[in-house]
Design a protein around this nucleic acid. Sequence first.
DNA 1: CGCTATCGATACCGGCCGGGTATCGCTGCC
DNA 2: GGCAGCGATACCCGGCCGGTATCGATAGCG
Lengths: 280, 280
Amino acid sequence: METRELRYFVAVAEELHFGRAADRLGIAQPPLSRTIAQLEHRLGVALLTRTSRKVSLTDAGAVLLAEGTAILGAIAAAERRTRSVDRPSLVLAAKAGGSNELLAKLLDAYAAEPGAVAVDLLLCEAHTRQPLLDGRADVAILHEPYDSTAGLDVEALRTESQFAILSTSHPLAGAAQLRMADVIDLPELARWPEPDGTYLPGPGVEVHNLTQLFQMIALGRAIAVMPEVVRTGLLEGLTAIPVVDAPKVTTAIAWPSHSRSRAVADLVRVATEVSSPGPG
Amino acid sequence: METRELRYFVAVAEELHFGRAADRLGIAQPPLSRTIAQLEHRLGVALLTRTSRKVSLTDAGAVLLAEGTAILGAIAAAERRTRSVDRPSLVLAAKAGGSNELLAKLLDAYAAEPGAVAVDLLLCEAHTRQPLLDGRADVAILHEPYDSTAGLDVEALRTESQFAILSTSHPLAGAAQLRMADVIDLPELARWPEPDGTYLPGPGVEVHNLTQLFQMIALGRAIAVMPEVVRTGLLEGLTAIPVVDAPKVTTAIAWPSHSRSRAVADLVRVATEVSSPGPG
DNA sequence: CGCTATCGATACCGGCCGGGTATCGCTGCC
DNA sequence: GGCAGCGATACCCGGCCGGTATCGATAGCG
């Protein structure tokens, strides 16, 4: 199976439309049809069912789509990592607006290490997992269970309970504490994008970063349940109320499991030291 | 980067010889040289340093070799899994001769499940990780910390302490218990292959499966430190003595982290049920 | 019920690229 | 210094990839 075939198949499987997929790939539609047919022939399985009006995935196609996107990400990652060997530097992916205090401590402590390399920050709107998988980042700060850690090596840094963030004018703003049942069905509960960038259907506002979320909350248009850490530096007019039965959120540092980089190992070690209780 | 380029590069990087690599790939040497040069040009990095007498890897080449073999394995896995979607069956990799009792219970219990599919057993000489990565197996039984679980999802099944296995005529055979310091430097300590099939240098006998190991031990040519489970059905003339400070060994069931197979999920659940304490 | 727009498949053609053979240039060795 | 081994280069050929033109099927519509 060639990379080209995989790229073409993934494009069609995502678009479910040969014309649009060909467009996205920058080629004409006939060679695309032919390549997919060849791939199916060689695998001996139908990947797509097509009528002249509709294209859909078979079970086998769904499997190949899942594995194929992972493989294409791994290839992109391999290229980037291979290219950047000679200029040692580290890209750390983190969520914009989140965990800033931990991040600052980590960067300071790592910079003081002997043999520290330059650390570039990749601030992501939401998910830090994708850049890790496709090689745009070497290490990522993420939050379980919100972010999936499948296929990554992970070191937990700290665990926090969660708070409801809401406008001080919200009816629930006076409560001393809340339970998930109090908030889970509220129509103003903000919705985050899924890893693929789409939103699950629902009533709440669609937000794609923390700044936007906080503005929405301040305007009384949204509420959210978030880890304790975002309380620091909360906007005027917002309040945080503990949600006692919300699942604990673990802030963790993650890296590709086959990473052999000295710099990554150092950064992870510093991260655990910085976040562990005790002096330092 | 195309799969073909990656295959070619990995062949050269492993052989460190263009002629042999071309031979292994079934092509002539000139197109191989040309393809590698193109790859280097496109990546903008030297992957190999060649004199007319010797080929060696650059740092960048070492990175690409590591990532490339993983990618090629993933591609092979994707093909196999895609092909076998329509004929649901499951391949379980296990070490030949190890954990047989657990294995039997697992297979029996799973077969009794509603919706169980056929389970094929892949009995490996040593490492069950590789067949999992390259798609020859869907699930594997492995032992931490002996086997690396990087990139896999793992469910621990049971944890055991370790025993020294030795001939009854061995000088240490009479001891009630041992410590690692008693055995670690013994010249007859058997050596297992690394994941790549090679052996680390050392004095001990090179063994590649349990049967062979036990024969060597019975002959007084070797000793080994192994999990408790191998005591059941120990050969005549062998004895097992607890090594009190040896690291605990965890038997675990592992599967590729992006697996979405119902059958795998069922098998893992049954495995945890079968191995958990209590009735059943 | 037929016209039409849409969409994937097919037919066919041209250029590029991947693979082959022949050969060169370099290097270590007897 | 002759020779053998090895990778690079030169050059040719055929197949495959991508393009245009067109077909066949189907859903929507009046």
